[in-house]
Design a protein around this nucleic acid. Structure first.
Lengths: 157, 157
DNA sequence: CTCTTGAGTTCCGAAACGGAACTTTGCTAT
DNA sequence: ATAGCAAAGTTCCGTTTCGGAACTCAAGAG
């Protein structure tokens, strides 16, 4: 299976992975949420090759996750900003952070803390049920076929 | 930067990405949560080459996300099961699903639905604050340096 | 004794990646 | 005026990884 085929699958994980499913895209997005916007700054912070950076930025723009906006005419220069669609990836990044903090942190503790402006406290991001607000874990979920399920079933989720 | 250097960064996203930051690992994990356990079944469902599948399973086992357990002696056969550490990746997968459902779903709707056993309802997974329980979005978070932050600061998150 | 199952390994050509140099446009300091 | 610099890429090349298909190994089944 090739990259391009992924987004055609009847699986939301596969479709999302077709956009952000490589290490560089995820790290670029991490930096976007830290307000990094410019080519040179991504390149310096990430240690990614310019070639690959240009490619990933182009793909993220095509996917509608980032927008390429001119921040200066003459000489014409562009920067990359999260769109609403991109901002919506925040839970994905938070989930990655949470797992890294819990399972891969050094002895010194988590490198970043997150404060919830609404309540003013440093918090852990927790997955909750939109209906009852209770915590959701792997063991208290049941997975059902939805309306967009594959006809005969095969690849899914 | 090479793969191996990622996990040494003072960034929980980078460390997590060093484990699950490629498309196949994420799709394998998706299937794990759907109770797929065997080599042949992964291979058939994913369309991944056997070569790469063997490599990814090995790496996920090394990372402690999956466990390789014999399910039959003579002939000796192994299957792959999520460990506690692996089950803890559930929020990552849910966040990916949620974004795919919201931004990449076909017109027929989401391919899968998730029922919260605790309340019995089909729900959307929402990121919440562990302190106040309120919803967390990109715009109501403030990011602070934590105890494990890089000394002089450079790559972070 | 041949067939089938299951979990891999091997081999090869194609694609993606890492590293470094080069390009382009206009500003800035000499 | 002119040499240097900044920013955002592009080009080139050698290495690594990937996709596809065939092969291996062990044991039970017909």
């Amino acid at each position: 299976m090739r990259w391009a085929e992924l987004e055609r699958e009847a699986c939301s994980v596969a479709r999302t992975v077709s956009v952000v499913g490589d290490r560089w895209s995820l790290l670029i997005l991490r930096d976007c949420f830290l307000r990094v916007r410019r080519f040179e700054e991504f390149q310096a912070r990430l240690g990614i090759t310019r070639h690959v950076l240009a490619d990933r930025l182009r793909k993220l723009v095509e996917a509608g996750v980032l927008a390429r906006v001119a921040y200066r005419q003459r000489p014409l220069r562009y920067e990359y900003r999260l769109t609403e669609k991109g901002l919506d990836l925040n839970p994905v990044l938070l989930a990655l952070v949470r797992w890294g903090d819990a399972h891969m942190a050094g002895e010194r503790g988590p490198p970043k803390l997150y404060e919830h402006r609404a309540c003013g406290h440093v918090f852990d991001p927790v997955m909750c049920c939109s209906v009852c607000g209770g915590a959701v874990t792997a063991r208290n979920i049941r997975i059902l076929d939805g309306p967009g399920a594959a006809p005969a079933a095969a690849n899914d989720a």
